[in-house]
């Protein structure tokens, strides 16, 4: 099967190199889903994975004259894609920075030590909760936390009093905390962790 496909691929690679649209379409058809899947698993977002597919395949088209039809396409696509995905991944990490800080704050507030919780679940639920906040509250929250403005700057920017800004932030964090409590974001692991921690000494104690 692979052998058959490779043959077909070389024909279309030459066609792409010649600048024919159907050559491009063939590779897009065969590999755009693969690239989307790969990018999605690293960026954890559909829209960012879409962006990667667009950028990478535009580069494939722009660099078509450099294409070597005798070389397999898949590894070639990977080298182009890696650069783009790396850039998006780091940009995303920059945007996630405030979520990491908030995480520590929330874990501490829950009275726990925060290393072993499922961080991907936290990120996902946090995005959902932020999305669910009332419009104004969400705006205040993101300006303060994500954009890093001060309370005074946020108040100026939105034309509301600093008191209101503080209020909105308190409410936002409160609703996120409550939702997390309800969904046992931290407690679920806690249970099993405590079991692990306590079972050993108990056992020894009984032995004595």
């Amino acid at each position: 099967m692979e052998k058959k496909f490779d043959m077909q691929e070389q024909l279309f690679a030459q066609s792409l190199k010649n600048g024919e649209l159907h050559g491009f379409e063939y590779f897009f058809w065969r590999y755009s889903k693969v690239l989307f899947h790969f990018a999605h698993n690293l960026l954890k977002s559909s829209s960012e994975a879409e962006e990667v597919v667009q950028n990478v395949f535009l580069k494939v088209w722009e660099r078509r004259s450099q294409l070597d039809p005798h070389q397999p396409f898949r590894p070639y696509l990977f080298t182009i894609a890696l650069n783009d995905i790396r850039k998006s991944f780091l940009e995303k990490a920059r945007q996630n920075q405030f979520k990491l800080e908030l995480y520590e704050f929330l874990v501490e507030q829950a009275g726990e030590e925060g290393e072993n919780y499922n961080f991907s679940r936290y990120l996902k639920l946090l995005d959902e909760e932020i999305h669910r906040l009332p419009e104004k509250r969400k705006e205040v929250f993101l300006l303060l936390k994500k954009e890093g403005l001060t309370v005074a700057e946020t108040a100026d920017f939105l034309g509301i009093s600093p008191k209101t800004v503080e209020n909105q932030l308190t409410q936002a964090i409160k609703s996120i905390r409550n939702a997390f409590h309800e969904k046992k974001v931290f407690n679920l692991y806690l249970f099993s962790l405590h079991l692990l921690k306590t079972s050993q000494p108990l056992f020894i104690a009984r032995k004595k």
Binding site: S32, F36, H37, N41, P75
Partner: peptide
């Protein structure tokens, strides 16, 4: 990353998504 790249098969990705992706890139090409 190459190991995961070789494993990615995209069969999970829907045809609707494919159409959307192609619809976006075709005019640009």
């Amino acid at each position: 990353l190459a190991k995961y790249w070789n494993l990615a098969d995209g069969s999970q990705v829907s045809d609707e998504m494919y159409k959307k992706l192609w619809g976006r890139i075709k005019p640009q090409i």
